[in-house]
Design a protein around this nucleic acid. Sequence first.
DNA 1: TCGGGTCGTTTACGATGTACATTTCTGGAC
DNA 2: GTCCAGAAATGTACATCGTAAACGACCCGA
Lengths: 243, 243
Amino acid sequence: MVDEPPPVIWARLSTQGRGPARTLDHAAITAVAVALADADGVDAVSMRRIAGRMDHSAMALYRHVGSKDDLTELMYDAVLGELDLTGIPSGRWRDDVARLARETRRLHHAHPWIARFGHRPTLGPHARRFSEAGLACVDGLGLDIDGMLDLLSTAMAFTRGFVEQELGEVEAQRRTGLDFAAYQRRTGPFLAKLLDEGEHPYLERLIVEAEDFPDPDVVFERRLEMVLDGLTARIDRATDGTR
Amino acid sequence: MVDEPPPVIWARLSTQGRGPARTLDHAAITAVAVALADADGVDAVSMRRIAGRMDHSAMALYRHVGSKDDLTELMYDAVLGELDLTGIPSGRWRDDVARLARETRRLHHAHPWIARFGHRPTLGPHARRFSEAGLACVDGLGLDIDGMLDLLSTAMAFTRGFVEQELGEVEAQRRTGLDFAAYQRRTGPFLAKLLDEGEHPYLERLIVEAEDFPDPDVVFERRLEMVLDGLTARIDRATDGTR
DNA sequence: TCGGGTCGTTTACGATGTACATTTCTGGAC
DNA sequence: GTCCAGAAATGTACATCGTAAACGACCCGA
């Protein structure tokens, strides 16, 4: 009587039954989609284009992925598989969390489109592997599961936010075809006018006093250390309380 | 000889000159676009739909905004204008930064589409106001401008990342038309199977031990405190060095 | 007064996601 | 060995998208 809820994509990955031998599968489709997104940006990922690369019709894909939304979830999880988690957890939580953060950042740089989807936390195999590894890193520190989640999620939230700001630049560059120099040429006159008006003291200090081309890796490490210090404080507080 | 660089949108906001009296302007267009995005999601924002609401043709908008990309930048800055920055800076940096974080989060909840654009830092008036206020909060703590930027950017990166995770759920709900309960119904059987296999100890602990419906505001505050502790450590280190 | 620039419209093009109907193939039941 | 339910893939079609191009209506400064 009541509609069966359509199962989540991960429970629906098809298997061979009756019918013609399949010439497509979700993994291959996902791989092509990822390659397309990497090469030409997320807007270049269209069902027709994916199908074209695989010498199939667009509609053939729907036999395997359900919808484009499903496909993005598959793409996201596929790419999580590239995370290198060997040797995690090591027993040194701070090193581990830092490594997870660096790996996450590296992944976003390799696939700048990752953050462009709004997802529920996916239940894909690689996402699960990541969660398990992450929580293992912050286990045994005297925190309950909510506390552990606080540590991990805070570090990851910082990382996501940092990376997103970084990638705003990169993505805009690709989208508009304007590199940073061209952007500065475009921006320059307006910026000069703003500074002339003298209403933006901090903007002025940023231009005059700030380091000109800071190494983004160094900046990331420096700020990550701050966040990790915050986590340390939390752990200390929890352990003091029970000591 | 060489092409003039087309000026940045903020330098191009048109003023009345020769020609028919204008019946449109960028502010009105932006307002309608924001309203549309709020009501029906960012995918509902199309030039035709905006124009329709204003009883104009789609192409009329292009007299005022140049491109849809420009429009998103206008939308973003417009919405930044809703930030309440009264009384900032107060002289208590920690309170101020916390308030900026809360305000930012509030803004993202009011306009869940904000993070879906990848932007360069915009030069719009409200973005400038926000930067100035933010940096003012962390001035006078004995840090140079790069250090100040570290404090502010770290707190904001955390906030963005946190909010984005929160909103993944909300946006997916709107996009798919499935509320959380329906999602759980869909997910449930698969999740049960996973737990049965016993390969996901932490996933299991999350379900069994973690607080069931944590208040997101409380979680945010708790994690924000951790980040602010990290900033404090950084400030202390800087001041110790010079003392 | 009138020419040139501004505002808005109309028409058009090549995309997009995907619903629907159709054809082509095959594994398992008899 | 035969046959057919059902799966795989295709082709066609529709509504919608961003925006280029050509055009007429308007109005200010010369």
